[in-house]
Amino acid sequence: MTQIIYQRSKGLKDVETHYCPGCHHGIIHKLIAEVLVEMDLLDTAVGVSPVGCSVLAGNYLDCDFVEAAHGRAPAVATGIKRVLPNHLVFTYQGDGDLASIGAGEIVHATARGEHFTTIFINNAIYGMTGGQMAPTTLLGQKTTTSQSGRDPLLHGRPVRMAEMLSTLDGMAYCERVTAANMPELNKAKRAIKKAFTLQMQGIGHTFVEVLSACPTNWGMSPADASAWVKSTMSQVYPLGVKKDITAEEKP
């Protein structure tokens, strides 16, 4: 008898991704795919892809997708979820998309408590355009538009979206996770599953921020980049549950 410990998720299309070696997008896509399969939602789910490296997410995940303009995924997802209230709807947005150009849209979608889930990929840099500074870039971090390192006097300071959005009453569940090592990867999957589960209960907005590595634009090996997420990024962006109204209800 043969037991399958792990095989490629059926929630992924049988295609190769365009992502760089060691990019966490591939890992996070997998986690979403696995959760969609486990929850039997592949047939009905609708994802919204951003502008950025994951613009082609709909080519990789085996569910329906809508490609949004840069930063507008929360508005697009609002439109979808409002007309398809019984479908799982999720956005998949990077940090330039969500924390910069789309900051307004995510704030108001959260404030309205829109019943979709945001998967927010924070890798502290603009990946697709070639490594420019993001709102989430760490102080001192070198990017192509902060070549001497991010200077708080010139460039401002990192934006903590999970904490900021958790102050809004429309946020039902918000957790920051990472896929940078095995225990954290398992937690990340549990967070995505919880967010999707709570979404289907219609209790408010659900949000999972995933600290991710961009080895190419960070100029690190994939293993070093993953280690840096845990050692350095998570100091600025602490992991953990930021808000969970289902937990608060319990005495």
Partner: peptide
Amino acid sequence: NMVYGAAAAGA
């Protein structure tokens, strides 16, 4: 963009 989403979903 909400119109875009709703239209994409078939409404």
